[in-house]
Design a binder for these strands. Structure first.
Length: 537
RNA sequence: GGUGGAUUCGUCUAACGGUUAGGACGGAAGAUUCUCAAUCUUCAAAUAGGAGUUCGAUUCUCCUAUCCACUACCA
């Protein structure tokens, strides 16, 4: 077979926000296509008019964009789904609802060739059959046995079929599964799979009620028409793979039939079952790439809004069910494209670990420059009522006016970035660099504040008062610790008391760093404020 | 219930049929600094069970168990 240009598709259904498992499927498709220099196509499978959710399509496109996954076909640069065929996009439109006229002829072709039949059983009738079977502890299946006792073009006289087709519209086209045949399939991830057609049911391919195909027909027809070479999709599709093989065969498209790869599911962090929205709410992590608000106003958090870097999110997702075979864990998108392979995709389900996701973000946060972090932190600071002068490179802190130079924030970010998983953690870690403590932790006051330390701190106060303004951190460090040693005071007691006054509790950055950044005036101010607020009897 | 898929530390995973079964997250201990983090060092932690093939099985086969998916005129 001549080597065709690789073309893969991600074909979500716009029935709600895109789950992170869906993003992973899209990512693997994308990586596979890009590695082979092929095309990644986004197709919207909106053949279920009942479950259509407005906004879901836009959400999907935005999510992929946020992840850095840009389709070659399906959407334009603005993220709109391309609706009309053109030279560059001969396969348009990419929304199945807009491809509606295409499918019926294919369904009829199948009937003409004996691979399908018209079925006139109503949903209620079939429901009743299922209930009846259930009562007898068996299951009703529309298959090679039961179809001969049901209302369809196989059992009804030709005239009646003709008449029903004309006068009613609640009939369907069903696939006529061959009897007792073993379908042999090959999956790129799972290998060889065999199944007997007797275990299959005659799936509905097309519905007269809404004139739309079901997934199975639309999927095969579109994959064929769009010249898809590999179908990489979720494991939930594995059971319908034999039907899909049979459909390609019935259409006579085996030559160009795509190869299949079924990805395992993402499992919940604890307990049993697949990862669901509820797990996120329950355990406190996002399940969706972007924030989503449904029609009822229910909010689902998103990785983006939770402060994850898209690179971290993508990296984490890529390693959930795939590994490069080396010990490298950090990859850029380009690196992933280079090393990705379906052969190394894990067959079993991957339990999602929120802690590991945080770790990935921490790694990416550390890769940011101080200036990038300062930029990101600035918007949070604005919310806290702090003004950051973006053009000001030097270090300047005006506590009265809550006005700080960008250089100040930048230096600060350099000091705290190792301590955070998210930029959103910054404020909690370093708010005392913008506002003086309003109170002092009782436990630490008890531990460090007494008549003895008071006398020492008063001397320290004078010492800092006499400090040279030009000193950098190392000099300040030397200046302060040298004085403590000189007087043979306990380093821990002195420094922690100062820290208590600067921070409000016994934690935080090195004293010299704090003094350097907040400046001499603020330093002295905080000491005297604390002495005043905390009387010693 | 039926059909299919899966099974290595708590989690993600590595290991041409021959390794002291490796790494990462998380956990514990220690070191370190003026505290808290961070960092560094160390430690604990796994081949689901049973048969078979083989000189030798995490790896191949079978059985059992468990888990997952599917079983719609949804995708």
């Amino acid at each position: 077979m001549t080597e065709r240009k690789r073309r893969v598709r991600f074909a979500p259904s716009p029935t709600g926000p895109l789950h992170m498992g869906g993003v992973r499927t899209a990512l693997y498709n994308y990586l596979y296509a890009k590695q082979a220099g092929g095309d990644f196509i986004l197709r919207i499978e909106d053949t279920d008019s009942q479950r259509f959710v407005p906004g879901a399509e836009k959400y999907i496109i935005e999510s992929l964009k946020w992840c850095g996954i840009y389709p070659d076909e399906g959407v334009d640069a603005e993220g709109n789904v391309i609706e009309t065929p053109s030279e560059r996009h001969p396969h348009a439109p990419y929304r199945q609802s807009q491809r509606k006229p295409i499918y019926r002829a294919y369904a009829e072709q199948l009937i003409e060739n004996g691979y399908a039949y018209y079925a006139f059983d109503s949903a209620e009738e079939l429901d009743a059959k299922r209930k009846e079977a259930e009562a007898n502890k068996s299951t009703f299946t529309y298959n090679y046995i039961t179809r001969m006792e049901l209302k369809n073009s196989l059992t009804l006289p030709a005239e009646e079929v003709e008449n029903l087709l004309k006068t009613t519209n609640n009939w369907t086209v069903r696939f006529k599964n061959p009897e007792n045949r073993v379908v042999e399939m090959d999956d790129l991830i799972r290998g060889h799979i065999e199944i007997n057609t007797n275990t299959l049911d005659d799936k509905v391919l097309w519905k007269a009620a809404d004139q739309l195909p079901t997934y199975h027909l639309a999927n095969i027809v579109d994959d064929h028409l769009m010249e898809i070479t590999e179908v990489i999709r979720g494991e939930e599709w594995l059971p319908s793979l034999p039907l899909h093989y049979l459909l390609y065969e019935a259409f006579g498209w085996q030559e160009s039939q795509p190869r299949f790869a079924h990805l395992s599911l993402l499992l919940k962090p604890d307990g049993k079952g697949k990862l669901s929205k509820r797990d996120g709410d329950r355990l406190g992590f996002p399940v969706f790439p972007l924030k989503w608000v449904n029609a009822e106003g229910e909010v689902s958090r998103g990785y983006r809004e939770d402060g994850y870097y898209p690179e971290a999110f993508v990296n984490m997702l890529a390693l959930l069910g795939w590994n490069p075979g080396t010990e490298q864990e950090l990859f850029t998108l380009d690196e992933l494209i280079e090393v990705f392979s379906l052969e190394r995709v894990i067959k079993s389900g991957a339990r999602f670990n929120p802690d590991k996701a945080k770790w990935f973000n921490q790694e990416y946060l550390r890769k940011q420059t101080n200036s990038q972090l300062a930029e990101q932190f600035s918007s949070i600071l604005e919310e806290k009522g702090v003004t950051v002068e973006s053009n000001e490179k030097g270090i300047r802190a005006d506590f009265e006016g809550k006005n700080f130079s960008f250089g100040y924030v930048e230096s600060l970010c350099g000091l705290i970035k190792e301590r955070a998983h998210f930029v959103a953690d910054f404020w909690d870690i370093c708010s005392y660099f913008f506002i003086a403590p309003a109170s002092y932790a009782e436990k630490d006051v008890k531990k460090f504040w007494n008549a003895e330390t008071k006398a020492i701190i008063e001397k320290m106060y004078s010492h800092i008062e006499a400090m040279d303004h030009q000193m950098q951190v190392p000099q300040i460090e030397e200046y302060l610790t040298g004085y403590v040693k000189e007087n043979e005071w306990k380093m821990g007691a002195v420094m922690n008391t100062l820290r208590l006054f600067f921070v409000g509790e016994a934690k935080g950055l090195g004293i010299a760093d704090i003094v350097y950044l907040i400046g001499q005036k603020e330093t002295l101010g905080r000491i005297s404020a604390a002495i005043e607020a905390l009387p010693v009897e």
